[in-house]
Nucleic acid binder design. Sequence first.
DNA 1: GTCGCCGCATGATCTAGGTCAAATTCTCAA
DNA 2: TTGAGAATTTGACCTAGATCATGCGGCGAC
Lengths: 237, 237
Amino acid sequence: MRDTDLAEIRALALFRDIGDAAFAALTRGAYHQTFPPQVNLISEGEAADFLHVLTDGSVELFAGWSGRETTMSVLRPVSTFILAACINDAPYLMSARTLVQSRIMMIPGSDLRAAFAADPVFAQAIVRELAGCYRSVVRHAKDLKLRASRERLANYILRQSQQSGDAGRFDLPLEKRLLASYLGMTPENLSRALKALRDDGVAVDGTLVTITDPVALGRVARATPLIDGPEPDEAIR
Amino acid sequence: MRDTDLAEIRALALFRDIGDAAFAALTRGAYHQTFPPQVNLISEGEAADFLHVLTDGSVELFAGWSGRETTMSVLRPVSTFILAACINDAPYLMSARTLVQSRIMMIPGSDLRAAFAADPVFAQAIVRELAGCYRSVVRHAKDLKLRASRERLANYILRQSQQSGDAGRFDLPLEKRLLASYLGMTPENLSRALKALRDDGVAVDGTLVTITDPVALGRVARATPLIDGPEPDEAIR
DNA sequence: GTCGCCGCATGATCTAGGTCAAATTCTCAA
DNA sequence: TTGAGAATTTGACCTAGATCATGCGGCGAC
């Protein structure tokens, strides 16, 4: 593995404070690979063999049932995924695929569990990461159960705008059909909802979203930190 | 705290394998209290001060937004809750209230974090517990996003039946309005959905549910371990 | 008992959002 | 540049499930 890659990974909250020995043991057996777009990295139901760390690109976590499929999360660098399955040595509950060309480090689950047992500082970092993932899904579930689709969209736009520097203007970081799936609606309905939000201070041109009236949009969204953050999480950003 | 209580708690997966010193440190500052029904234990947004362990009774985790409210989970003994908020020292994302008279042990967050740092075995147990909670919410989210309400109900009935010894007959462990909220539907619609399932092998009389035709019900439910378990989790059981 | 409340069921109606189909725009490779 | 296929939009329509209103039945307070 390249030293520059290692340095970048070392800077992750998950690895920042652990001992050099533990870090070396973790990365010794690890792969760091580049994948083309649309590559299936893992499929739900399979055994969890590797902790994945996305260092560059974009990865979709999704799940399917009975011919249907839904986007659970879209990850940006630098994030870890499927930590929970890996820790518990359980089958994945979600599948993962690259959306664009992506670099991903894969750490063998056995190494992960060994390092976890050997280094208390690493254990602490793992727990923080896991707790963050947990809270992120809880937010997603609350969003789905408590809000109508237009409200979810309005809040998504506000969150996204804030994460892009709060300039009131940003590019959607994913295809609209995936955003629709993430928000729990159909692409058709997302299209209509975006048009409907014109009256509430949102202008859309292709992937460029502009918030023309933050107050009006805020009235629709009624954002709350208990659903919309801020908190470091692995949801779409 | 009574010795019998302590023994029971000690037997929890979370505490089973930790050292006596760590366990003593954890329980020294802990309370073990009995609460009447319908008592608010915690409210979302508040700071997380205590890890809660339900030792007897039943507790509802719920969340609200903008005048709406939804049941996220209903806990049975013995379960821990709000571990994630406590570990991260972050605000609760969910509120909790007793449904019936309940006994709950509360361990100060500071003690929890101290024990976590001091005892690697405890740290490992915490991570397992957290990973289980995470996977439980992911299942809930998949259930909500991938299934129609009747399908969710059919699967709930199958899960519940299995957890009650698979006799094909069990008592609903919660009020129907709470079940409806947990399943993401209105009480009216739950009532109709239960009636509709008569054609698919389910008979309901009050809180008593009887599966008269497991094959037919299975055809509707199309259960999968990737949503419906089995896995120790903190969802309704 | 019986009064009043609450959980639940049922019917009538409404609507958010899904489905289907067709037109339009975008992407990208030849 | 051009053409094929995909993404998106738009319109027409439909349905799952919400809402509203009413009635029933159990249960606790008095």
